[in-house]
């Protein structure tokens, strides 16, 4: 019996989500009766779904280790504020893009360092970060921008290229890199090991702190790309409202993708499929003209339904195997 790095549970979840995504696309296709081309829907899906997938890839690595990062939405706000300030101060696009990348990467590293050195669970540290970083972004904007009125306007189209033009390509390259890396690198396996037993890692002579830090390192890179697309997509950067509850959307995609929220098991591919699934679901609801007030509740019900159905199928198959 040959078995790759995915467990059967994960493979089943991946197939399940893949089929689900195809069905949702079919539904969108059928719902597109009056006007609107299917190609447009697909084209738009790049920029819309890219931030969730990119941030999700980073989050997947962190959740592998049994930690979590709740502050990613606020980190994106800081990146966006830095970006906005630099744009307003007249810097060119490359500097502004670079600065927002570095800002999110370093805050992610800071999270890792704090979790490591203070020995406080990541969920607590990053919960504090969730409010702290957003507050810090507001303070930063208030200090650096004269007459800061709550939002920073980015009128020049040159600053919107990553979010509006290249999002799909960035997503494609990053996703391919992540999947290759998952298939051929040792580091993700170390993260899974840490998530499955920290004690065992220590007894094996591995350094748990360093492994955790590497997860935050990698997450920072993906988060930087997500932030870049996120902040260059909008006309106005509004620190108080940008990327609100983004972290929950991302964690939702990760969990839907079959990654164990307590660490030790999961896949990057699942996260990408999960994010697509959530996005297509919302699209179907929009095209089906479901009352917007109902949409969020319906989305939640669908998540529960999908995970419930998948787990039930898995249990049933395990039971059948035991009987055989």
């Amino acid at each position: 019996m040959k078995q790759g790095p995915y467990s059967r549970f994960l493979v089943q979840r991946l197939v399940f989500l893949f089929v689900g995504n195809l069905l949702l696309l079919l539904a969108i296709r059928l719902l597109l009766r009056a006007g609107g081309s299917f190609a447009d829907v697909l084209k738009r899906c790049g920029p819309d779904v890219a931030p969730v997938i990119l941030a999700g890839l980073g989050m997947t690595g962190i959740i592998f280790t049994g930690a979590i990062d709740l502050s990613i939405g606020s980190v994106i706000v800081v990146a966006g504020t830095v970006f906005g300030i630099l744009v307003q101060s007249g810097f060119g696009p490359p500097v502004c893009f670079g600065a927002s990348l570095i800002a999110s990467w370093s805050l992610s590293m800071l999270n890792g360092l704090l979790v490591r050195s203070l020995k406080i669970p990541a969920i607590i540290i990053t919960l504090a970060g969730l409010t702290f970083y957003r507050g810090a972004a507001l303070i930063l904007a208030e200090i650096s921008i004269p007459n800061f009125g709550g939002n920073i306007s980015i009128p020049d189209e040159a600053f919107h290229s990553p979010g509006k033009l290249y999002a799909g390509r960035i997503l494609f390259v990053a996703l391919a890199a992540a999947l290759l890396w998952e298939a051929f690198a040792k580091t993700p396996r170390r993260w899974l090991a840490l998530g499955s037993s920290e004690e065992a890692c220590r007894l094996l002579g591995l350094a748990p702190g360093r492994i955790l830090q590497s997860a935050f390192f990698a997450s920072g890179i993906f988060l930087g790309l997500a932030a870049l697309i996120f902040v260059t997509r909008v006309q106005y950067i509004e620190p108080a409202r940008l990327a609100l509850s983004f972290e929950l959307q991302v964690i939702g995609a990760v969990v839907l993708g079959g990654t164990n929220i307590f660490g030790g098991e999961g896949s990057f591919a699942g996260t990408a499929l999960g994010a697509f699934f959530l996005y297509f679901t919302s699209q179907v609801l929009t095209y089906a003209e479901v009352n917007p007030y109902f949409q969020e509740a319906v989305t939640g019900a669908i998540i529960i339904g999908v995970i419930g159905l998948d787990c039930a199928l898995h249990r049933r198959r395990k039971l059948l195997e035991e009987l055989a």
Binding site: R189, R190, A193, S197, L203, L206
Partner: peptide
């Protein structure tokens, strides 16, 4: 040392468990 409480990783393969260090 082989500790009494076996220190291993459930969702990694046997080979990975043996050679991770």
């Amino acid at each position: 040392t082989i500790h009494q409480e076996l220190a291993f990783f459930g969702h990694l393969s046997v080979a990975e468990n043996m050679l991770l260090g």
